[in-house]
Amino acid sequence: MLRFILTRVSLIIPTFIGITLLAFFLIRLVPGDPIETMAGERGIDAARHEQLRKEFGFDKPIFVQYGVYISRVLQGDLGKSLVTQAPVWSEFKALFPATMELAICAILFALVLGLPAGMIAAIRRNSIFDHGVMGISLAGYSMPIFWWGLILILVFSVQLDLTPVSGRIDVLYYIEPVTGFLLIDSLLSGEEGAFASAVEHLILPTIVLGTVPLAVIARMTRSAMLEVLGEDYIRTAKAKGLSRYRIIVLHALRNALIPVVTVIGLQVGVLFTGAILTETIFSWPGVGKWLIDAIFRRDYPVLQGGALLLGIVVMSVNLLVDLAYGLINPRIRHNR
């Protein structure tokens, strides 16, 4: 197990280098620079432009710029936003809980619906329910996030007027950030209606972001269950006289969860990508929207730092999922 963790951790260094390289060079391939976008419509004369470029260090050769950037990162300095002048780290810290809250809700939504749906589909194989679950999940899996988000807004917010269109909570409330998770903070604040408002704002983004993981989890649970139910040890469990419920929920599900957890691990990266789109659609004040805004402003330090920090988050979550995998799969736990 220790070796297992160490190999995982040792992968972090090359991944870290990869992320910094990508984030650094990709954004510089995009035409335009931060000075132009800051100057905006008014424009800027060439001399002043050149002077500012020198000030920001953009005139140096690009590899020198990268070297300077990396050495600062290694000292823990991610730089300051070119737009707000606030340190990248403190902006990220303030915004990240919103993204995390959305991601957690989405994955819970996917698990709470996907596990039982996949299980029942497997048990009632080839029934109408099974075909329904498989059909819907295929549709859900292929749904583009932007389109799906807009459809839901049109139906539930515009037509039915059931849910708010954007933001995390109604503007009426000011919630002191304690944990950064509004669901918790709104309860702590004791303000009447704040929690309900936070929940209302979460519903659509959660559905939009949770749809792909939901589809993946439902399908994976079904196929894993089908395989497990044909195993010898399930026949043994029946031969012991155990109840159907216990066989399915304990003996079968426990084994079926192993591939499902692997799939959830693979979904973590997808989830954060989805979060960036979802936050943009719903004006969700998280790191996703922050990054998108940074792209438009060519705010290099924010983009580089944000991508790096998000990458670290995805890697850490992946590591946690791998540990969970080791915990539920005794064969891994003892062999490595």
């Binding site: 040890y233 084994n255 005794p330």
Partner: peptide, 8 residues
């Protein structure tokens, strides 16, 4: 070996 549940 396959008749026993690997997870328990």
């Amino acid at each position: 070996t396959t008749s026993l549940n690997p997870c328990f």
